[in-house]
Design a protein around this nucleic acid. Structure first.
Length: 623
RNA sequence: GCCUCCGUAGCUCAGUGGAUAGAGCGGCCGCCUCCUAAGCGGCAGGUCGCAGGUUCGAUUCCUGCCGGGGGCACCA
């Protein structure tokens, strides 16, 4: 498999996911309608405020929560009640009385504490169908890339084992937010940072080697701090297939002069546990040093084999999960290239580093961190922070001025120092955009890499499918804890929420299949002239939702909330299912009505596809 | 102790200043001679953790408590 490399030299580029869509502004009708209502209200305000010294408020128009409140609402009267010294409803009456006549408005109604609700003629909404059909995959999208350049780094799971369900959430979120940003005017680049340097890789290698020795018939005790899981045995077998027994050493040679690893006794105090764990870490380090001595270059072979094998598993899982990256960036390559030293020098040149207790520190506290941080440890090894800092500098050097990092919530305390480093070198406080993904809990127990019996993301995908798994992850706000109901996700039952949306799409496809079977045709070109036939409340609900899609996308992108797309799609599917149950679309005796309804559901299918595409979920034609 | 994410129906969760707070699941009652019933319609179920404050208006913003998750390394 290809080795990942550092920045600027992508090894494996994922295909760009954005479809070649029709560029251009979102359909203007909703915006135009709001502007129109604002003009009417503005004119009314001229009259109402004449002779008053009240400050003219901004005219806010909102979508209504419920169709019974009309199409748009304004709270103008509530805002003006106090300055005018009149009850809100009285103000509302003045405003409504002063409203000029309009061809689009059927009525303006005062409701509740003083809202003015506008009811528009259905004709105002019908053209959305033609817009959707004309723009297709491009409907709602802004592929201009003119909002700016943003790099999204996500997953970046350590290559020391398979991805678990927590990583899956970050993968689903990161992939969808990248798609969402790309669909709303951003130029997006997605990266995976491969932590293939440092002590954890040595721990991985020693674990693999000990299992390899097992396979060669050499029995050694397995250290507590090693990775005991079965996937290590698999990698050990891969190693043996590759090198035979050339890396076999006698157990006695490995263990000579080595005291037994200390064990935590039952009922030990917390202090004792911590002390013994430190001794166990030291024991693992001793084993690693011993292995290096005995193996020479062979040690590197083991490390490479282990990394290749683990990363290969991760790559397969992500591919199955429909998650792609523009680039995989290697920590080890970053170190080897000398760029870490370059970054350190830049900090030193600014007087932001100093030595203390044999270590090299950075003055992060001067930039809002709660304390200064170590860059190079007393033993000469760089900290994770040091290399990661360099990586972020590298990203900025590559002309990505906005860096979104998708991290697990356990990295919360790490934000301040990375932000400090970036601010120190760029004088920009806002370059780093961290999205913390809250924890995933499993309905049947917790996961952990050392336990050996955790549920991997691959397990989940294999059993529940990519669609159900991705949809499930994205059904919750990312800053909310997610309880992953494994049984539900695994079940191919009606309870699984992804099917509800997909089914709406499949149903529409089935209608067109039926039409073809009957030998009928649907004339898309004639649809525009037939749309005036869409006059019932179910059609109105669909028309309204279709029209809201573009603004929903913008809102979801602005708030970094792909789950908003999920909830929108559920609403759209619900409107379709309700419509389906009440009305027939294949209307034998009314060709114009049939044309109009088919156009409406074709547009609905298009928006379902577009939205599901943002989520990375398929839109099947049959279920 | 400090930082942070939370606390909304029996359960899982939406709702980034507005109206009578919503959905799914679970419970109950209906709907297939008709484009897939993986669907639709209806009923029951709430002191939006507690207490103050700001506001014409607070589930939403602020403060303080109570309860829970996570983080506070020369680990990654």
């Amino acid at each position: 498999m290809p080795r990942p490399t550092r920045g600027g030299r992508p090894v494996q580029s994922a295909p760009r996911l954005a479809p070649a869509a029709i560029a251009g502004p979102p359909p203007p009708y909703r915006v135009a309608m709001k502007t129109h209502l604002q003009d009417l209200l503005s004119s009314a305000l001229d009259q109402v405020l004449a002779g008053s010294d009240a400050v003219r408020p901004a005219i806010g128009l909102d979508a209504t929560r419920d169709a019974k409140f009309g199409d748009f609402q304004t709270n103008l009267a509530l805002q003006l009640a106090k300055p005018l010294g009149k009850p809100p409803r009285a103000v509302a009456e003045l405003i409504v009385a002063a409203l000029p006549a309009s061809a689009h408005v059927t009525r303006a109604e005062i409701a509740g504490p003083g809202f003015i609700n506008f009811f528009l003629k259905q004709a105002a909404f019908q053209n959305i169908v033609a817009d959707v059909l004309a723009q297709g995959e491009g409907f709602g999208r802004d592929d201009s890339g003119t909002k700016g350049r943003i790099m999204v780094e996500f997953v970046s799971a350590n290559p020391t084992g398979p991805m678990h369900v927590g990583h899956g959430r970050g993968a689903a979120y990161g992939d969808s937010i990248a798609k969402l940003l790309a669909a709303t005017g951003w130029t997006v680049w997605r990266e995976y940072y491969v932590n293939d340097a440092g002590r954890q890789v040595d721990i991985l290698a020693i674990s693999v080697w000990l299992r390899y020795l097992d396979l060669c018939g050499e029995r050694l005790p397995f250290p507590k701090r090693g990775y005991p899981a079965d996937y290590i045995k698999h990698t050990a077998q891969t190693l043996k297939d590759r090198v035979g027994e050339s890396l076999k050493r006698d157990a006695s040679a490995v263990l000579v002069d080595l005291a037994d690893e200390p064990q935590v006794p039952d009922g030990a105090s917390d202090a004792d546990k911590d002390r013994i764990k430190l001794q166990q870490e030291a024991y693992a380090d001793t084993l690693i040093a011993r292995a290096r001595e005995l193996l020479g270059d062979g040690w590197e072979t083991i490390k490479q084999t282990a990394l290749d094998d683990q990363l290969g598993v991760i790559r397969k899982t992500l591919a199955d999960f429909n998650v792609g990256f523009d680039q995989w960036s290697s920590e080890a390559a970053l170190v080897k290239s000398g760029f870490v030293q370059t970054a350190l020098q830049r900090l030193a040149d600014k007087g932001l580093t100093y030595e203390k207790d044999g270590a090299l520190w950075m003055r992060t506290e001067a930039f809002g961190d709660e304390k200064d941080r170590v860059l190079v440890k007393a033993d000469g090894a760089a900290t994770y922070f040091c290399n990661d800092l360099a990586y972020h500098v590298d990203k900025l050097d590559r002309n990505w001025p906005v860096l979104m990092d998708v991290w697990g919530a356990d990295h919360h305390g790490y934000i301040a120092r990375v932000r400090a480093a970036i601010e120190a070198l760029t004088e920009r406080k806002d370059a780093l955009n961290v999205q913390l993904i809250q924890f995933v809990t499993l309905s049947s127990g917790r996961m952990g890499k050392r336990s050996g019996n955790f549920v991997t993301l691959q397990d989940l995908i294999d059993e529940a499918g990519t669609d159900a798994t991705r949809f499930f992850y994205l059904t919750r706000s990312h800053d909310q804890h997610l309880e992953f109901d494994i049984d539900l996700a695994r079940s191919q039952s009606n309870d699984n929420p992804v099917f509800y949306v997909q089914y709406a799409h499949a149903r529409i496809c089935r209608v067109f299949e039926q039409l073809a079977e009957k030998g009928g045709r649907w004339d898309a070109a004639a649809a525009a002239g037939a749309l005036h036939r869409l006059d019932n409340e179910h059609e109105k609900a669909l028309l309204t939702l279709l029209g809201r899609y573009p603004e929903m996308l913008q809102r979801a992108a602005g708030a970094y909330t792909p789950h908003s797309v999920v909830f929108y799609l559920k609403d759209l599917a619900e409107a379709l299912h309700s419509y389906y149950n009440v009305h027939r679309f294949l209307v034998d005796d009314d060709a114009e009505l049939q044309t109009a309804r088919l156009a409406l559901i074709a547009a609905t299918a298009q928006v379902l596809r577009n939205g599901l595409g943002i989520l990375g979920v398929s839109a099947p034609e049959k279920m």
